[in-house]
């Protein structure tokens, strides 16, 4: 329950109200995996769960983790304000991440909505670092407007690669946007994958995930090949406080990444 003192090394703006912190943890013995999260404390304000969004340049003395924070309230805003040299509290890593081992040898469809791209980014790094192990890799990404697109430079660099398909859509566009307009589910039709041998990783607002899953099922994916990241209020992150209950599961312990066939019934219910 005790955080360790970590330090921000760099801070980069990644969108409106969105900042990526490059954090030196002062440790080398724990690895945070794609899809896992840490509990970050802004001293005197509070502590919130934030997913790993990438790895920084770790040294032999200390590992560096990237966390991308959208300032939506007191704690996230205080975290997003931290600059180089500032201390923060860090506990983790926690939770079950993306099924990178299960993805080997298969086509991988990644569907992200809004800030949901942040927890999927380390999974993309993982796939691209060992590209030969996987089939087609597709990223379908939806945001509210072109200004909300996260990690823009990186997406543009990936677009230039021939071994990953990237489709981006926005809900509302002004003039000057030449890409897709509409909800991210409409992009599923653009993805090329073999439904018999594919896996899908989905992260975004709950409604977005519900519709995306329907589209993926319509495209032929079976329920046991679709993974989603569930979001619930979290206080302890270690299965002791009860806050993250999601039916029979504790999201901090059994998730946040869950296989769709295991939570199908819950996802269909309101206020669970």
């Amino acid at each position: 329950m005790l955080p360790r003192v970590a330090r921000v090394r760099r801070r980069r703006r990644d969108g409106p109200q969105v900042w990526t912190l490059d954090i030196e943890t002062g440790e080398t013995d724990t690895a945070t995996l794609p899809g896992q999260f840490n509990m970050l404390t802004a001293f005197g304000i509070g502590e919130v769960p934030i997913s790993l969004s990438g790895l920084g340049e770790s040294s032999a003395a200390s590992q560096r983790l990237l966390h991308t924070v959208r300032a939506v309230g007191p704690v996230s805003a205080a975290l997003a304000r931290l600059g180089p040299g500032d201390a923060l509290g860090l506990r983790g890593p926690f939770g079950v991440g993306w099924p990178m081992a299960a993805a080997a040898g298969r086509d991988v469809v990644i569907v992200a909505g809004g800030l949901g791209l942040a927890p999927l980014r380390p999974a993309l790094h993982h796939l691209l670092a060992d590209r030969g192990r996987y089939g087609n890799v597709t990223l379908l990404y939806g945001t509210r407007s072109p200004d909300d697109i996260l990690f823009r430079r990186e997406l543009e660099a990936w677009r230039r690669r021939l071994d990953i398909d990237i489709e981006v859509t926005v809900d509302h566009a002004r003039s000057g946007w030449h890409g897709h307009v509409g909800v991210v589910t409409t992009l599923v039709a653009h993805a090329s994958f073999d439904p018999q041998n594919a896996i899908a990783l989905v992260c975004g607002p709950e409604v977005m995930m519900r519709f995306t899953i329907n589209a993926l099922r319509d495209a032929g994916l079976t329920d046991d090949t679709i993974y989603l990241s569930v979001e619930r209020n979290m206080k302890c992150a270690v299965g002791l406080c009860g806050h993250c209950q999601y039916g029979p599961t504790l999201v901090c312990r059994d998730g946040p990444v869950m296989r769709y066939d295991r939570v199908r019934g819950l996802l269909a219910l309101k206020e669970i």
Partner: peptide, 18 residues
């Protein structure tokens, strides 16, 4: 058994507690 946590801080911000 459910619990939550509260963070407090001294007026000058040098001491905080959970």
């Amino acid at each position: 058994f459910c619990t939550t946590v509260e963070d407090t801080s001294s007026l000058d911000g040098t001491e905080t507690a959970r």
